[in-house]
Design a protein around this nucleic acid. Structure first.
Lengths: 233, 233
DNA sequence: CACTCACTTTGCGCGAGCGCAAATTCTCTG
DNA sequence: CAGAGAATTTGCGCTCGCGCAAAGTGAGTG
């Protein structure tokens, strides 16, 4: 196995505040792995033997209910940690992670977490900061689901995706990975039909441009208006 | 200020795995505080100067949207940590905590968290385990909101409350603190009207018994059926 | 290059649950 | 113990968004 170079992870948020030699020590027990598009990286309920950092690509995190319903918990972007069940005292992954596109990840054995987080406190702090913002984001979603209409929820979801993974193009900002109406529906608690109708309407208004598994926001500002407007309960 | 005794916190989940003398060291910088019913313990957006453990009572954690909408994030029971923004790298509380009944809490200055969690790794591990289950619970709520009808959501919410804070009485299991239809509505994303209608119906079926700010589950099993049944999207 | 399958669009009807309103009941306060 | 206010119940109409159905449109594959 070729030795991984510190430059791979230098500058990534989880490793902020670590010196070069520390980066190397952190990297030493890590393995680099590739996953093809739509291949699972880990499965819900499986034992959490590894935790991960995404080097390249996008990962979809999905939770499935006992009744077989799927909900997209979040998308992971480059440079984020994921699968950190261990850091939260869990022995199994609470959700399934699937490569949304071809991905490159780093994987550490979960058993090393206690040692790594003690030896490199910044790593622990960075990770728990991420956990904090995910917790807050989850609560935000609960609130959106409680208080907003479908139109606003979809608008908010798109804006969030654009903020996290937007890529500028000639026609606006494009979501950087393949995403279907069904996916958006699973993120917002709507049906793909309703999402499709909304997107068509917005396309007509010139707010978005979308094709098969592709969404571009041409007028983010007007979309923000959609996200905020309308009376609430 | 009277010195606090280790027995106060011995056996509480956050302090599991600490020795008696360690408990005393942890307790040394803590202050004990009382809060009257309906008084805020901390406010959303305020700087997180303290983190807390609830010794007695029940605390309601509420998040308010910019538009003034309120959503109940969770209830805290005896022996739980809360207000741990600091441990997640946040400087402000993301929500407001209100004493649902008269409460006794322990408060530590946030600035001590790094030192305490390093000196007593078990404390850190216990806390992050709690964070992990809260994150998972938040996702569970997102999923419920996405996939369930109001009736099931209310049933699930009641069952969760009963599990966390149930107190056995002659007529069933009672939720141990005052809770209004409005509160239940804010937990489930419904209106108090719909909650009221549901509870009336269930009362007629002999599943619950409820009065002003009081809810008793007389037939948890039948309520579980309500929570699970019904076709889903 | 055609075929197939996945994804998307669109129409139509219906029902859960909200919005609004008003009446009722319980609890606390003075 | 009476009055006031908070909490709860209940009715009614309406709308949003789902359920179901079917047709249309790409994009990848043999």
């Amino acid at each position: 196995m070729p030795k991984l170079d510190a430059s791979l992870i230098a500058g990534l948020p989880p490793f902020e505040g670590l010196e070069k030699d520390e980066l190397e020590q952190v990297l030493a027990p890590a393995r680099s792995l590739r996953f093809e598009r739509e291949k699972p990286i880990f499965e819900q309920e499986a034992e959490a033997h590894f935790f991960f950092v995404l080097l390249d690509g996008h990962v979809r995190v999905v939770r499935t209910t006992p009744e077989g319903q799927q909900v997209i918990v979040r998308y992971i972007s480059e440079g984020e940690v994921f699968g950190i069940a261990t850091a939260l005292g869990r022995t199994a992954y609470p959700a399934t992670a699937i490569a949304a596109v071809d991905c490159v990840v780093l994987a550490w054995p979960s058993a090393l977490w206690p040692e790594l987080s003690t030896r490199f406190p910044a790593l622990g702090a960075n990770t728990y900061r991420t956990v904090g913002s995910r917790l807050q984001e989850a609560h935000t979603r609960v609130i959106e689901m409680s208080t907003e209409q479908v139109e606003q929820r979809v608008a908010h979801a798109l804006l969030r995706l654009v903020r996290q993974t937007g890529r500028k193009t000639g026609e606006g900002i494009e979501i950087d990975f393949p995403i279907t109406r069904q996916d958006i529906a699973e993120m917002t608690g709507a049906t793909l039909h309703t999402v499709s109708r909304l997107m068509s309407a917005w396309e007509g208004e010139g707010i978005v441009k979308s094709g098969r598994k592709r969404v571009t926001i041409s007028d983010p500002h007007r979309l923000m208006l959609k996200a905020e407007s309308r009376e609430q309960r």
